[in-house]
Design a protein around this nucleic acid. Structure first.
Lengths: 192, 192
DNA sequence: ACGGTAACTGACCGATCGGTCAGAGCCTGT
DNA sequence: ACAGGCTCTGACCGATCGGTCAGTTACCGT
């Protein structure tokens, strides 16, 4: 792997663990075994390093969100989305962890704005598909919880179950949580 | 409210939104309408401000975790815990949001260590009560997702449903996710 | 009227921040 | 042999960081 890519990976990991503002270029340089100047040779600025670290993941997530035409009420199409989403989480835990936690605090950073737009966009899909508070929360818990559990597991990691097993379990649980979306609105009461 | 308490509240809010390292004493002082020196008059250090901001919430969470004797398999006792937990989340969204997101990155800070010990402790309870990967994840999604959704709602906030409704919905969803804990182990298969 | 104390401040400190710049080392094509 | 480009570096910059300190207010009990 090239030095360029090494720096991107190191930066992503540090940003996710210690936060963007909590990570100095000096520290990234030390981990890479380089000087701070070398880091700024490969990337014009700290912000460029952030863009390189999480930009690709955001682009991929955008294409997933765009591909759902808006009809998440259809169980089959929802199933496809859930699998894509879970796979995305598994491949990009660090990126997701980082922009979920620090997104709101890093305004005026273009790559973060793109990510926040995505969250709002996705949230709008579900908001329009559902009317009561409980199902709203169900959606938030499913997506936020799945994202959280993957990043938390590796930090408090007690054991590491096989990836396939985690994937299958996540698909099952998220599907359960999102199942109410396909029932007719009148079949569920909005209160209690 | 006293200046002392004002500073604590301002610090908590800024720490949660911008991160601990992303928040300067200067900024806290500006929001409070004071000088940086005044902030350091009320609190000996930035770390003391962090302790004041999230310490009480952690103490309260500790008493909740301690009160569950370990028998979360009992449906009634689990119900009590879930209600206490949801109430705790509703009262301390900011504190939870902050230590969940930044806990792992803020080592060597006593108050954060206490919080991390709590998470490990709580996680141990559930790990011992459950054997398969899916139920492990169910627990993580329930607690992490509930915590996430409350802090995220107010940042991307589109609307604000009444608190009682949110509370009832959260109790319902978390109870559903944790329900498998009370079934006999043989009643659930570990694979698929 | 006076002494004490709580609240607050500006000046200042060393360290570190992100970033600039001139140049050193090295490899390669000619 | 030499010229040109990568890669990398230390010295340096202004700004900001958390924190210290001497001193200024204002209020309060005596």
């Amino acid at each position: 792997m090239s030095t360029h890519d090494d720096l991107r990976d190191i930066a992503l990991n540090e940003f996710a663990v210690a936060g963007y503002s909590g990570t100095s270029l000096q520290r990234i340089a030390e981990i890479a075994g380089l000087s701070k100047s070398s880091v700024l040779y490969h990337y014009d600025s700290k912000e460029a390093l952030l863009e390189a670290a999480i930009g690709p993941a955001i682009d991929q997530m955008k294409s997933i969100v765009d591909s759902i035409g808006g009809s998440l009420l259809d169980a089959d199409r929802r199933g496809v989305f859930i699998e894509q989403f879970v796979d995305f989480l598994l491949q990009h835990r660090l990126e997701v962890h980082m922009f979920i936690n620090q997104g709101p605090g890093l305004e005026d950073v273009p790559v973060i704005d793109r990510a926040n737009d995505l969250v709002v966009h996705l949230s709008t899909f579900f908001s329009s598909a559902v009317s009561n508070t409980e199902d709203h929360l169900r959606f938030g818990i499913a997506l936020g919880g799945a994202a959280y559990v993957l990043s938390a597991k590796q930090e408090y990691s007690l054991e590491a179950p096989p990836v396939d097993e985690v994937r299958a379990a996540l698909v099952t649980i998220v599907s359960e949580l999102l199942a109410p979306l396909s029932t007719t609105p009148s079949a569920r009461s909005t209160a209690n």
